[in-house]
Design a protein around this nucleic acid. Structure first.
Lengths: 261, 261
DNA sequence: AACCAAGTTTCATTATATGGAACTTATCTA
DNA sequence: TAGATAAGTTCCATATAATGAAACTTGGTT
């Protein structure tokens, strides 16, 4: 899963360390990091010092625990604001979610995986970082497959190879061949389906968001459960889905950022 | 405002560059970054390459524009999840906001400024300057003053000195002396008020969130407008505010992070 | 076609990161 | 409580990576 082969010098090492702390998912001691670290004690120690002093990590000196720092949240807020996709798509997500009364996701591609950047759930309101920022597998989510399908052949094949397949359900795609065939099908259909491939009873229809030059900017999906709709019925959302996806793509292109803030 | 004196080597330079891109607030060209950069062309170029290859920056090759990268959003999501404050406080914010029917903010201290990490806005949404991930001044917001007031003396004085005062309204505190006096008052009262110091007609009552050892973990505020309440009436929320703040503080201490994810 | 600006690569030099080992706390154990 | 063990921190010669002046390439303009 973690294919970040090229080191990119010291900066790369520092950022990998951030990932390591993120992956653990809770505040962590020096020694715990050390056992899983490719670096010797002194090197790891200095990397942690640097990141802490920079605010990328927090350090609880009472308990001697490192955790991800507040500077990340600040930077991510700026990232979200200046992404051409998320702020533009907001009103369109509202509209789509309201019209269909179903959950809508907006995602972007991140190293072959899906990064969810926004979500609308008609029932419960959105809490910013609890939903946005989550990642999901590329090969067994609607958005993931939709985005992969419309990538340039070379990049697509490379990312397909990199998927680390895991059988979440009986329907999960678990081979490069299966996935490639599915992606070809998606290119023809213009939309991707998640046929309970990631979670039982959860199905979705998804489309890529493309620029005018057909570059993949992101993906859009409508998610529901088998209790509410069959896959066949879900296909009826195709028109609305594609319309919204192309609107977002068009807006993202012409978007001029506000002069100052 | 930007007191990040120590360079911390290459990693520090790279992170400063991220801040620079964030501050511009929109996708930006190489040359624009170069004019504002302390580094020569080649150095800046390689820093950008590294950050882009690491996913901390995105690069639109068609338009030759750099922007903050998706990896930041992923890391911030993890930061939010593993912060001891935000996930724990969630249900309590809901409860408080619902009970009082007013806007509730949760903040943390970041270099003397307030970083808002969560927000609850019941039915009537007041349009104002705050959202998760946003930062606000420490010296003229309720949360900021509440947190500063309860810091250890040495740290408090240092941060008070670092504030760059700007008179947003007629009531804004604009000197170190005024602020120090206000903070002393806040320590006695246990709560801080924002008396239209940041935005006209916006007032709030705020309290620090403290650990059992009286360390400042964050701040909590109830915000409203002068159209709805007077400052005096706002003081009636003190009991509920302090109760919720201390509940959050207690929970944050005992919180055991889930084993795995 | 010649020019200019923006972006990219090169390479010798310099500065920085590295990591083995010694050292200093904390924590456990008998 | 001493002694032992582990965890965290500092040191310093060496190796490695970052630097930046300059040359080069690319794309656009007159």
């Amino acid at each position: 899963m973690k294919i970040r082969n090229n080191s990119d010098g010291t900066v790369g090492k520092a950022l990998d360390l951030l990932d390591q702390v993120a992956a653990i998912g809770r505040p962590v001691r020096f020694s715990e990091l050390l056992t899983a670290s490719p670096h010797p004690k002194a090197t790891l120690y200095r990397l942690l010092q640097t990141l802490t002093s920079q605010g990328m990590l927090g350090y609880d000196s009472e308990r001697q625990l490192y955790s991800l720092g507040v500077r990340l949240v600040r930077l991510a807020h700026a990232a979200w604001r200046q992404s051409s996709l998320a702020p533009i798509a907001r009103p369109l997500l509202d509209e789509l979610s309201l019209k269909l009364a179903e959950t809508v996701h907006l995602g972007q591609l991140d190293h072959g995986q899906v990064l969810y950047v926004d979500k609308r759930n008609p029932a419960s309101p959105l809490a910013m970082y609890s939903d946005a920022g989550k990642i999901g597998p590329g090969y067994c989510t609607g958005i993931g497959k939709a985005m992969l399908a419309f990538l340039p052949a070379e990049q697509r094949q490379s990312l397909v190879q990199q998927q680390s397949f895991h059988r979440y359900t009986a329907n999960t795609i678990v081979s490069v061949e299966q996935l490639s065939a599915e992606l070809a099908e998606i290119r023809q259909q213009q939309v991707a389906f998640d046929r309970e491939e990631h979670e039982p009873n959860i199905i979705c229809i998804a489309a890529p968001i493309l620029s005018s030059s057909k570059r993949v900017l992101g993906g859009l999906s409508i998610t529901t459960s088998t209790a509410r709709y069959t896959l066949l019925e879900l296909a009826a959302f195709k028109v609305d889905l594609l319309a919204t996806a192309s609107k977002i793509g068009a807006l993202a292109e012409t978007w001029d950022f506000p002069e100052t803030n």
